[in-house]
């Protein structure tokens, strides 16, 4: 073997984007599992508090909602809340961290296609959302009985939601210039929309005008479609929910790829 250069010069570049995709996903999963105290524990604690306070303590006084006891009614929404916040936070903070630490350049100087970079980060976000979603679901079983009404709806809505909010998190990460910029949208947009998105109540309770306004909130469709998968009830039509989710995902994907292609936030 030569001293400086590795002697096996020939390199099988095989299917470079597939290997690169696996590498990004592995790195992303290792990142959020390595800092599990920051990524897994907080949603578990927060959701447990929601179950105890809103479900057990206050819920007993509320009675039924949509034909189910209040605890059973809010569980699907809380699982979706975890999926939304974790997919978004994972991708926005990871991509911004890579920009901030400049190690995003490792990918930019390599032959990976922009779509592979995007798909890698999105898969990482989906993985964390699914991990946390499963943890929250298991925790909910200590408080209520979950009978799944339609497993296909549960799986497809979970994945679609995680993909959509991972993409939105990615777009946030591209534009973010400071650490504060990755927390502004979750704090001032996602959290209010989630609270108003039918997690804790049926929009049938709202006056007509506000029920109409609520339908502009995309999280309403996510929560209700997932609630249909678990309980079999929904305030909105399932077809509308899928249509809106798929449309938003396609638009977010195109925007994210274009941002990467233009080098927004990463190239001068």
């Amino acid at each position: 073997m030569s001293l400086a250069n590795y002697e096996e010069k020939a390199t099988d570049f095989g299917n470079p984007n597939w290997v690169a995709y696996q590498t990004i996903v592995r790195t992303e999963v290792r990142r959020f599992t390595r800092i599990w105290v920051q990524t897994m524990i907080p949603p578990a604690i927060t959701m447990t508090l929601y179950f105890i306070i809103f479900g057990s303590l206050i819920g007993r006084r509320i009675g039924d909602m949509g034909g189910f006891d209040y605890m059973a009614y809010i569980v699907p929404g809380l699982i979706m809340m975890s999926v939304i916040t974790n997919s978004y936070a994972n991708v926005s903070s990871s991509f911004f961290g890579a920009k901030f630490g400049k190690f995003i350049e490792e990918m930019l100087v390599s032959p990976i296609s922009n779509q592979t970079i995007l798909l890698g980060y999105v898969t990482g976000g989906v993985a964390r959302a699914v991990f946390v979603g499963i943890i929250v679901t298991i925790l909910s079983l200590f408080f209520t009985h979950l009978a799944i009404h339609n497993i296909l709806a549960v799986i497809s809505i979970t994945l679609l939601t995680a993909v959509l909010f991972s993409l939105l998190g990615f777009i946030n990460g591209v534009y973010a210039k400071r650490f504060d910029d990755v927390s502004i949208v979750p704090t001032f947009v996602l959290t209010p929309l989630t609270y108003l998105g039918g997690v804790f109540f049926s929009i049938d309770l709202l006056p007509d005008f506000w029920a109409g306004v609520a339908q502009l909130n995309p999280i309403l469709y996510v929560v209700n479609a997932f609630r249909f998968g678990i309980l079999g009830v929904s305030d909105i039509s399932l077809g509308w929910a899928y249509g809106i989710l798929v449309s938003m995902t396609v638009v977010a994907y195109v925007i994210a790829v274009r941002l990467l292609a233009n080098g927004a936030g990463v190239r001068s």
Binding site: N15, P16, P111
Partner: peptide
């Protein structure tokens, strides 16, 4: 990781 980004 760098090798992976280059498809190795």
């Amino acid at each position: 990781n760098t090798a992976g980004y280059h498809g190795i």
